[in-house]
């Protein structure tokens, strides 16, 4: 009886929670359409796309400087792609290694997982100290990049571990029994079958790296990545151009998600990988 009362109450509460999650973003999106003379708050003096144009450099110069997103966007995308390739590769081969039992597997597991637990500001500091000591210049494609992999590799590893966990080994054994070497078996059988998992690992790595800044802060040197550019605005007055940027970058992320969903759909349709052997007893 109490559950009957409780359920609608919790339902309303849950709706309020979702509003709490989305509220700020909705306000931000509304304010991104502020007029040219308006500030980063209500009231909206005039609905316009002025700040979007400002962001893209399509407005006449004003006292408010443009967000330097052009180069930093390119850097962030490149960095995210480099990170995706390396951490997914590491994730796949490490998870593949974990399919054979070996003594130190517990320790290795925790070592890898630690990468997603250690606060970015700490490894960032440590890497900055290390590069100082060794006299290596800090750069987004060097010191920052290796830390991005430290952060995203554990996610890729966990995704691949889960995929291998439910992988039907007999398909690989079938390939071996046909005289095909383990390397070829991995390439011709295992990899095509785990490909949907690899896509997920790549998506994880890419989005995490693209948005990562606490690890980049001390390690990227002079050239800023996109999150660092945004972080730079924290200490100064903000303008609606950053809101417009927020809306655009969110749209970009959703596009990425959509591409992933489409690729996944295709991969699953092409393979039906995990349901191919449904007759197994």
């Amino acid at each position: 009886m109490e559950a009957r009362v409780l359920k609608p109450i919790l339902g309303v509460y849950c709706a309020a929670f979702i509003l709490f999650l989305y509220g700020p973003m909705i306000i931000l999106a509304i304010l991104s359409f502020q007029g040219a003379g308006g500030g980063p708050q209500f009231p909206i003096i005039e609905w316009s796309t002025y700040w979007y144009q400002h962001l893209l450099g399509m407005t006449p110069p004003s006292r408010i400087s443009r967000l330097p997103i052009g180069d930093s966007l390119l850097r962030s995308l490149t960095l995210a792609m480099m990170t995706t390739v390396v951490s997914t590769t590491l994730g796949v081969i490490t998870a593949q290694g974990f399919r054979t039992r070996f003594k130190a597997s517990g320790a290795v597991f925790y070592l890898v997982i630690l990468g997603m637990i250690v606060p970015g500001v700490l490894v960032g500091l440590g890497m900055a100290l290390l590069s100082n000591m060794l006299g290596i210049d800090r750069s987004w494609w060097g010191t920052a990049f290796v830390l991005h992999v430290v952060y995203t590799f554990p996610f890729a590893f966990l995704v691949m571990l889960a995929i291998f966990n439910r992988f039907d080994r007999s398909v690989e054994e079938a390939s071996l029994s046909l005289g095909v070497s383990p390397v070829q078996t991995f390439r011709r059988v295992t990899f095509p079958m785990i490909f949907p998992g690899v896509l997920s690992a790549m998506l994880f790595s890419f989005t995490l790296s693209y948005d990562e800044f606490s690890r980049t802060l001390f390690t990227s040197g002079r050239e800023l990545t996109l999150p660092l550019t945004i972080y730079g605005t924290f200490s100064v007055e903000i303008y609606p151009n950053i809101f417009a940027f927020g809306v655009l970058t969110t749209l970009f992320s959703f596009t990425l998600l959509l591409v992933y969903a489409l690729l996944m759909l295709r991969a699953v349709r092409a393979g039906r990988s995990f349901k191919g052997q449904e007759e197994a007893v």
Binding site: G97, L111, M127
Partner: peptide, 22 residues
């Protein structure tokens, strides 16, 4: 198997453990 996991382990040791020790 150890050969497969070693790149990841080396990466974590060099770029996570070593900085923390630093």
């Amino acid at each position: 198997a150890l050969m497969l996991i070693s790149p990841g382990v080396v990466w974590m040791a060099l770029f996570m453990v070593l900085p923390m020790v630093m």
